[in-house]
């Protein structure tokens, strides 16, 4: 079937099987490999993207469900060579080690602060409960997100 999605501001149309998951549509049809697959079972958050502005796990959405929608992936956050403030904060706070969880973590964090611009530490920790990181112990991730929150200073 034909699935049309606006991805990072550009219209994409691809012929895919109905059972194609959104994450595979993004990685394979659109060639955007920034979004990772971790658990493939809605638990780890590595595949988090924004669907119509909200963080969702793209391993648990069919591309067909997003037909006509807007998707933002990690590739769509930066403005040219200028990192998105959340990406910059992850960089400065050393909020990544291997980097596997990072695209999903950043997308979840941006969505969280859209909804809770003044999130405090507890809100940030709870708001990121759907994202697992096996390297950092979360401390620096939380620090990075708090540095962008009105409630974190």
């Amino acid at each position: 079937m034909q699935v049309s999605i606006n991805v990072n501001g550009s219209s994409q149309a691809h012929d895919v099987e109905a059972r194609t998951l959104l994450v595979h549509y993004l990685r394979e049809s659109c060639g955007l490999t920034g979004t990772n697959v971790g658990c493939d079972s809605s638990s780890c958050g590595a595949c988090t993207i924004h669907l119509n502005g909200e963080a969702v796990k793209s391993c648990t959405v069919f591309a067909a469900q997003a037909d006509g929608d807007e998707v933002t992936t990690i590739e769509g956050l930066a403005d040219g060579d200028t990192l998105h403030p959340m990406q910059q904060a992850f960089h400065e706070c050393h909020a990544l080690q291997c980097g596997y969880c990072t695209p999903g973590m950043v997308m979840a964090a941006v969505s969280l602060l859209d909804e809770e611009p003044n999130a405090d530490e507890a809100t940030v920790r709870e708001g990121l409960e759907g994202n697992l990181c096996r390297c950092t112990g979360y401390h620096n991730i939380v620090k990075a997100v708090l540095s962008q929150s009105g409630g974190g200073q």
């Binding site: 669907l51 963080a55 796990k57 969505s111 409960e129 759907g130 994202n131």
Partner: peptide, 9 residues
Amino acid sequence: VGDPQVRHR
């Protein structure tokens, strides 16, 4: 229920 991503869907 689950986490924010789950609750968005």
